[in-house]
Design a protein around this nucleic acid. Structure first.
Lengths: 196, 196
DNA sequence: CGAGAAACGGCACGTGTCGTGTTGACAGTG
DNA sequence: CACTGTCAACACGACACGTGCCGTTTCTCG
């Protein structure tokens, strides 16, 4: 039994300082080379305080990541499915799969391979909402006749996002904006309504 | 400078025992919960001996993994591109993305996020040859008119394999054989020669 | 406004794993 | 039959983890 701390009395200053320090240090030195002690030192916070509110380093960085990705990766609906997918996926690419944050995001995903609780949090807080949003947006497009009536939207989501994570986690290079666009167009063409 | 050991005098018995122990323990307890000491103990080998021949635990497990995946994931050429892709990708699915080995493979990939040398070895020893083989097989199919003349085979490889790794590493569930087949058919349909 | 409760920073501690150093036994080669 | 180098066994320092304690600060409630 962990003694449950009282969220109302939590120091919001320490909270924010910890998240900022975690993201900064991970961006600088890489996720795996950052220790909880280092985060505590940079944030001007006691190590004990971090462990009071988060179970592991991964949980801290995940929360920081959710904060960053949170607003920036919403799904628009302009009526043009291709344009909307480009907008959202370009944002994903730029915010979490390019530059120093790419390694941080990859580091968290790596951590989920041996931390089941973190894997669950990553799924529920970051992945699932976006997958659902993509699915919904594709369903709308299908209802509007922009995709085939029998298009498998789950498969479409896999085809759209799969290669991005594949290239990120296997170090195969990231997509340029141009390549991302032709990628999206190619996938949508596979689900286009029949010419009949 | 590491004192270079003499490969000719290497104990082949210890070599094999170490690889087997590493794969067994990782399958049982998960990649992250296995230590070099445990591998040494199980193999009846000194920890020093492991460090003499491999730089890290990841390198040991990678070599074991390469041995397992080595033969089983060759690319056939029966003339039917769909069938050949099904054959090879089903083998990949069954050998390294299903059951206990899935977590081991995911564990190695996780390790590459903070071990550049291991990332390089994974790419050169495991990924690159298979990506090249897939690419070559698709080029043959294109030359035979089974794909559009201007089909982007690199994009096709991304679309074929990306979702497999995406689902593996993000814990989104693995494909069934049936779903894998329809996945392959859908991707190929996106590169089908024009009906004209 | 004051007393109490709870989070806070600072510090020390035990634990586990890492990667290396040392030793003496053993096997292959000239 | 000596020489060279790998082998198992054990000990070691370094480092990060996660927790416990203590005195201080901050917020809440009577």
């Amino acid at each position: 039994m962990t003694s449950t701390p009282n969220p109302q009395r939590r120091s919001e200053k320490s909270h924010r300082a910890t998240l900022a320090a975690a993201m900064d240090l991970c961006s600088e030195h890489g996720y795996g080379n950052v220790t909880v002690e280092a985060i505590a030192a940079r944030a001007g916070v006691s190590k004990k305080t971090i462990y009071r509110w988060w179970p592991t380093k991964g949980a801290v960085v995940l929360e920081a990541m959710v904060g960053i990705a949170g607003d920036a990766t919403q799904f628009p609906d302009t009526g043009d499915i291709t344009a909307d997918l480009c907008t959202q996926m370009t944002a994903v690419l730029d915010h979490v799969m390019t530059g120093p944050r790419a390694a941080v995001y990859a580091g968290i995903i790596a951590e989920t391979q041996h931390d089941a609780a973190l894997a669950r949090d990553l799924r529920t807080q970051l992945l699932a909402p976006r997958i659902a949003a993509a699915r919904d947006r594709l369903l709308v497009a299908r209802a509007h006749g922009q995709l085939a009536a029998d298009a498998d939207v789950d498969m479409a989501v896999d085809l759209l996002y799969g290669p991005l994570y594949y290239r990120l986690l296997l170090h195969l290079g990231t997509y340029s904006h141009d390549r991302l666009r032709s990628h999206i167009e190619r996938v949508l063409s596979a689900f286009a309504p029949s010419a009949a």
